[in-house]
Design a protein around this nucleic acid. Structure first.
Lengths: 145, 145
DNA sequence: GAACATGCTCGACGAAATGGACAAGACGAT
DNA sequence: ATCGTCTTGTCCATTTCGTCGAGCATGTTC
């Protein structure tokens, strides 16, 4: 599905998505039109979901992060799911198997703010919150192989 | 720390990090040299960690995702931390307060593979694994405000 | 082996990024 | 108030880059 050349290109773009076509094509040993065409197809095939920018939340004032496990009360599942989606401080959330129904990540500025955010959930779900101390693995890709 | 213009620029770049300076500057109503200068400073201040590309793991064959909570056995904390870091299928991991010590995300292709990966941890830690069914909140930024 | 598809290179032209010179506004110190 | 000066911006000339069309090599199909 992806050949070696595509993987090399992706590997470079992960590091620097704003690299010029010319430089990129030199690094991988192709002409720029062919690299351009490969990029077009990688986007078309949705291998590349988007070109984006990685912003440090603490630069926006969010110095604290927590991981919240959420178990909705009976009958509250959909309401809780909507509530989570409408809480912008929750920056990612997965619906999972097991006792917990949702596991999400919250960015916040103060403990008071965290308390406010969790209070809104508390009416409709049991929650279990862990404060992030460090991040031993920063976001990365699984092996391209 | 960030003015309105910076936030507008970041908002656009999140959507499309490969937009040309020219188009970006037209959208925000500045000249391209000034936008270029702002980008340079946003990178310098580490507000922008990097320009990157969002790749769909399933395009790489990783059709399954799980969230694993890891509680190292006594004396095993550092060994477990290193083991996690050296497992490339674990694409993010936070060290947290509370009963669980680490919470991480794993991408894998088959249940057999998941089993293999968890077996390696099982010697040194208790684990608790939840398979991701859906992702109600895809990765996004907290409010820029 | 002829016809076609795919994926590449090359070269030219228009488009965009960059760097330098300079202007305008905010702010402090005198 | 006025003079430096720091910041942030514009404008323009030069350099660099992206895109498009044409054409070539390779491999597959009938």
């Amino acid at each position: 599905m992806l050949d070696e050349m595509d993987k090399t290109i992706l590997g470079i773009l992960i590091e620097d998505a704003r690299i010029s076509l010319k430089e990129l094509s030199q690094k991988v040993g192709l002409s720029s039109p062919s690299v351009s065409e490969r990029l077009r197809r990688l986007e078309e095939k949705k291998v590349i979901r988007s070109f984006t920018v990685d912003i440090d939340p603490s630069a926006l004032g969010y110095n604290l992060t927590a991981i919240v496990r959420v178990r909705p009360l009976p009958g509250m599942l959909h309401i809780v799911e909507r509530l989570i989606q409408e809480t912008p401080e929750i920056t990612e959330c997965d619906k999972v198997t097991g006792d917990d129904c949702f596991i999400g990540k919250i960015h916040f500025r103060t403990m008071e703010q965290l308390d406010t955010l969790l209070d809104r959930l508390a009416e409709k779900a049991e929650t279990n919150t862990s404060i992030v101390k460090t991040s031993p693995v920063k976001r990365r890709l699984p092996p391209l192989g």
